[in-house]
């Protein structure tokens, strides 16, 4: 029971939903994060489930994920295209529980913006494009999005990507990763995104011929500043993990 909730609001449009938000009224789609936390200062939920799509369309021109699509719907789509996809396993770990994957939406996952979510690190690596509704609709890169607005669609474009890799280091497969590194090869560039037990997801890119072990070490040194030390690793150790992950994904690409 989420005691503090006294009202479910069903707005007529996303614009209306956007305007209704305040500290005690929040957007609600899948609800897996919100209901788990049961924040007592929230009193009303603005349910946008009927206003967002729930599907995933995939073609070579682009993968388009509706904000209301669940993580599992996306995984099933990827699997139907390529069941051997190595990524599939990696991004599944964003949420090892299929129960929760069946409920958690893409919009919710991005809205939450967990840096230890493999899906988030992946979307940063491919620099997914978000369609966002505020007063007006606009598109914004996930790396640039400031959290304002209601996401309606997430798109990325495999034909611009020559290779994708994801490396994660976690104590157990089911445990949140200490370090997650996503990487793509696109034309003459590598792009890397780094998440994990970190305050934010960071991205780095360089021309392929400039990529080197020293560059990885320098990036790792920079990236680790956003990380936190915990009982499974000091910052010094996490810096090493980031460098190793960068090296591995780069070499595989």
């Amino acid at each position: 029971m989420w005691y503090s909730i006294n009202k479910i609001i069903k707005p007529d449009s996303l614009k209306e939903a956007y305007s209704l938000q305040n500290k005690t009224r929040v957007l609600f789609s899948g609800g897996s994060y919100l209901v788990a936390e049961k924040n007592p200062s929230i009193q009303s939920l603005i349910d946008i489930n009927d206003l967002v799509g729930h599907g995933v369309t995939a073609s070579m021109e682009g993968i388009h994920i509706d904000a209301g699509a669940t993580l599992q719907t996306f995984l099933d789509t990827v699997e139907s295209i390529n069941s051997e996809c190595r990524l599939l396993k990696g991004i599944k770990y964003s949420c090892p529980s299929k129960q929760i994957r069946n409920q958690r939406t893409f919009g919710g996952e991005i809205g939450k913006g967990r840096p230890n979510s493999e899906i988030m690190v992946f979307l940063h690596a491919v620099n997914a494009e978000l369609t966002v509704i505020m007063e007006t609709e606009k598109t914004v890169s996930i790396r640039d999005w400031n959290g304002d607005g209601i996401i309606t669609k997430i798109s990325y474009f495999p034909n611009q990507i020559d290779g994708i890799e994801l490396e994660r280091f976690s104590v157990l497969d089911s445990a949140p990763a200490l370090v997650i590194v996503g990487a793509i090869k696109s034309g003459d560039h590598f792009e890397f995104s780094i998440g994990g037990s970190s305050g934010t997801i960071q991205t780095f890119s360089c021309r392929i011929e400039e990529w080197s072990e020293n560059k990885n070490l320098a990036w790792a040194k920079e990236a680790v500043n956003a990380f936190v030390a915990n009982h499974f690793g000091s910052l010094e150790y996490k810096e090493k993990l980031i460098a190793t992950a960068l090296q591995r994904v780069g070499e595989t690409l």
């Binding site: 989420w2 909730i5 479910i8 609800g31 897996s32 209901v35 788990a36 939920l45 349910d47 489930n49 599992q72 529980s97 299929k98 129960q99 929760i100 069946n102 409920q103």
Partner: peptide, 13 residues
Amino acid sequence: GKIMNASLILIHT
């Protein structure tokens, strides 16, 4: 037909 956690589902959905 899909597995979910009953404690994360609000009745109104």
